[in-house]
């Protein structure tokens, strides 16, 4: 299975899971983890910045048009594209900093919420007022970090499995996370 197919499967699965299950969880603070953002961060960390930003753009566009969405088309595409690029370009540091995925997820959640709200504020979206954003922001980062190990693990696991046939040549001793680029 090629990496592109894999990335699209991950994105679609994250989206569907997000709108049908996660968004309906009655979590305290009425904020929920953003699986799509986590999937974009994980894909960017595994695949590098080019694939990361393309994956981010596609995931964002899909999140813009999936049924209950009711905002200006292109907002999530813009935000996730940037996040994919940034997370992909720090992926080189992965072998030195084992905690990098968490930092990337935290930064991604922070930047994602703020950027999305900023674009909304520029467009005069009544949902993106400051009291709402300041209430959502810390909880959003917290939930995203809590949920990140599962998503990142799932993406890594999938990538490993997809690449196992090539592994069997035994040429590459580095575990999947660092080899992926």
């Amino acid at each position: 299975m090629s990496r592109n197919v894999l990335a699209s499967i991950v994105i679609v699965a994250a989206l569907i899971l997000q709108v049908t299950v996660v968004n309906r969880l009655p979590l305290p603070g009425s904020v929920v983890p953003d699986l799509v953002l986590l999937a974009v961060v994980a894909l960017a960390l595994v695949n590098g910045s080019l694939r990361g930003l393309v994956a981010g753009f596609c995931a964002g566009l899909a999140a813009d048009i999936i049924p209950p969405a009711d905002h200006t088309i292109g907002r999530y595409a813009l935000v996730f594209c940037l996040i994919g690029y940034v997370c992909g370009s720090v992926a080189v540091e992965m072998d030195r900093a084992p905690l990098l995925p968490f930092v990337a997820v935290a930064a991604g959640a922070l930047a994602g919420t703020v950027l999305y709200a900023l674009v909304g504020a520029m467009l005069g979206d009544p949902r993106a007022r400051w009291p709402v954003v300041s209430h959502v922001l810390p909880l959003q980062v917290f939930y995203d970090i809590v949920a990140s190990p599962f998503v990142v693990w799932a993406v890594l696991r999938l990538t490993n499995r997809a690449e196992r046939p090539r592994d069997s040549a035994g040429l590459d001793p580095v575990p999947g996370f660092y080899r992926a680029r």
Binding site: S49, L53, T72, G74, L82
Partner: peptide, 26 residues
């Protein structure tokens, strides 16, 4: 990280596309 120039070009194009979409839709 072989091809940063290409990456940046793609980034620029996609950002422009999303900005254009936001503008048109808004």
């Amino acid at each position: 990280m072989k091809d940063t120039r290409r990456t940046r070009a793609v980034l620029g194009v996609l950002l422009l596309v999303s900005l254009a979409m936001i503008t048109v839709d808004y």
